[in-house]
């Protein structure tokens, strides 16, 4: 871990020692799992919210940290996950339900606070994730040796900065290969980097140095999960193959078929196999 991350990880872990409020959330509980609202403070005493889902079956259960994606809304975890795993789904600072002090803009969040290392908001966002993982690990009736983390950049970065991760399911990393992928006219959110370059050309070198702290290649040495799945498009397979070669765990690079149902099955089957559990019931086609 480098000079940038060490103090941030320490602060994030300390934040997890603070008060945590866990309240029943009956509206999102169902026949297979109970739902809870989790409230705690991240670094800087920032108030955060997360969904916690606990299966009604006997434990201990595999804990999953479902890292937030790039968007204002954090979805309630899928039915089959809630039925099988203890799932914590965090709303990081700026997302809905964690936006009492700061509301993220889309587009805007990806470059918010650049160019400075200390002002770039993603340092605190990653800290929120690290704090949330520690709170997940404090929950009763879980098998902490099988911690799984799923999601995009925040899953990968959190796994890199967290010891003892068993399974990491990730892909479509925004911070990957930025210099190459921002050439031409990329779609948002990557286009945010080009907007920044165009309007703050004199600051791009400093911004680029800050962004290196989030570069998957720079963080690869910290990713020591036992099992890793990268899901990717065919055009980016070579990048993920290279990344996979640097990880010590059993790593799979799966090229998505572009058929959402099959790709979803591949990912959920991999997760169940990696964690040694039976996959939850399919929720469509549903036969109650």
């Amino acid at each position: 871990m480098n000079e940038y991350w060490t103090p941030r990880v320490d602060a994030a872990r300390n934040a997890a020692m603070g008060d945590v409020s866990i309240e029943d959330l009956p509206i999102r509980s169902n026949e297979t799992s109970n739902a809870y609202s989790v409230r705690f403070n991240g670094v800087g005493d920032y108030p955060l919210y997360a969904y916690l889902h606990v299966p009604k079956t006997d434990g201990p259960h595999v804990p999953i940290f479902q890292a937030p994606g790039y968007g204002s809304v954090v979805a309630v975890p899928p039915f089959e996950r809630r039925s099988t795993y203890v799932v914590l789904a965090l709303c990081h600072r700026g997302q809905r339900l964690s936006n009492s002090r700061y509301s993220a803009a889309y587009p805007g969040l990806l470059t918010d606070g650049l160019p400075g290392e200390d002002s770039y908001v993603w340092g605190d966002i990653v800290s929120d994730c690290i704090t949330a993982v520690q709170i997940l690990l404090q929950q009763p009736n879980i098998d902490t040796s099988r911690l799984a983390i799923t999601g995009g950049d925040l899953a990968y970065i959190t796994a890199s900065l967290t010891d003892g991760v068993h399974a990491l399911q990730t892909g479509a990393l925004m911070f990957a290969d930025i210099d190459h992928r921002t050439k031409g006219d990329p779609d948002y959110p990557l286009a945010e980097f080009n907007d920044f370059k165009r309007s703050h050309a004199e600051s791009w070198d400093e911004a680029r140095a800050t962004l290196a702290n989030f570069d998957p290649a720079e963080l690869a040495d910290g990713v020591d999960a036992n099992k890793v799945l990268f899901s990717t498009g065919a055009g980016e397979k070579a990048y993920y193959d290279q990344l996979a070669n640097r990880l010590p765990g059993e790593t799979t690079v799966n090229v998505n078929l572009g058929k959402g149902h099959l790709d979803h099955i591949t990912q959920e089957d991999w997760l169940a196999d990696a964690c040694g559990v039976n996959k939850g019931p399919a929720h469509y086609p549903w036969s109650s």
Binding site: P26, I27, R28, N30, A75, V76, P78, F79, H283, Y284, P285, W286, S288
Partner: peptide, 18 residues
């Protein structure tokens, strides 16, 4: 809502459960 258990339609099932 009766065909799937995915959100957003699951919101209807949640509401009717309560």
């Amino acid at each position: 809502a009766s065909l799937t258990r995915s959100y957003p339609y699951e919101e209807i099932n949640d509401f009717l459960r309560l």
